[in-house]
Design a protein around this nucleic acid. Structure first.
Ligand SMILES: [Mn+2]
Ligand SMILES: [Mn+2]
Ligand SMILES: [Zn+2]
Ligand SMILES: [Zn+2]
Lengths: 135, 135
DNA sequence: GTCATTTTTGCAATTCTATTGCATTTGCAT
DNA sequence: ATGCAAATGCAATAGAATTGCAAAAATGAC
């Protein structure tokens, strides 16, 4: 029996563990970026032996380090995560009423000029306002 | 004796208190956005009867609500604040090595198109990388 | 200035999110 | 199957912010 696609992907970068498998599987299905807590809850709902909260954090850190997942700082207290592969960088919309985070369609973002000697690595654009549901 | 400019500004929006006065005075002098903790430390260094930490948080919330100060979500855990009056919105640079936050020169940023029914209120652009000092 | 009313403050306790230390378990190359 | 590095669970800890409430301070009316 051949390994499933998630296992295949993980194996290309290192050890395949249950926590990493569930994190990537859940993020792949997610319609919007998830907080570690939301991801933990989804895992707990999906399997009786879901990983510990701490393990979810560590799995996410690992997935980010491998470039499989991206971290969104957005704004409120908790970080959010989404799959990075086959998913070009894009801006996000944070509804200040319901708190939900939405992905915006990829759009060429023009970075401002940097002072001499500064080197940019990545940029993040967050738009705040009200979503269609809350407006 | 006429009130100083900071007192004048505060009085236009509500009560003038020591915490608000120090918060605005310190932010006006700051060369970069400050965290509540940095602001608290600066106040403690400036006066023997500096406000409590909690009061600093509340003063900042009030200043933001009045539009005198703006909150920057940047990325690391702590929020940062800078004066908003006579200071057009602009992007920020977060050095991933030293953790410092720098203001970038104002630059026209085009927002990505929003889905139907979404209403934008503000946008925040954070560039991450290495500053001239750390590069 | 004094008083009355409303707002703000300080302090302690609490919440929320994330990180660390360490003994135990697991993945996987051999 | 075995060995060992890597990952996990659990409890403790850290960091940032918020909340409740009695005491103190700011303003406006007299
Ligand atoms: Mn997204
Ligand atoms: Mn700035
Ligand atoms: Zn909403
Ligand atoms: Zn730096």
């Amino acid at each position: 029996m051949p390994p499933d696609p998630i296992t295949q992907t993980l194996a290309r970068y290192g050890r395949v563990t249950a926590a990493r498998w569930w994190a990537l599987a859940i993020l792949r299905e997610a319609q919007q970026p998830l907080t570690p807590d939301e991801l933990f809850a989804a895992a707990a709902a999906a399997t009786p032996k879901a990983p510990d909260r701490v393990t979810v954090y560590r799995a996410l850190d690992w997935l980010v380090a491998k470039g499989l997942v991206r971290r969104i700082a957005a704004s409120d207290r908790a970080a959010r995560f989404e799959v990075a592969s086959n998913n070009p960088a894009h801006a996000h919309f944070l509804c200040t009423t319901c708190g939900r985070t939405w992905c915006l369609p990829p759009h060429p973002t023009q970075w401002p000029p940097l002072p001499d000697g500064f080197v940019a690595h990545e940029a993040e654009l967050v738009v705040r306002g009200q979503c269609a549901h809350c407006h």
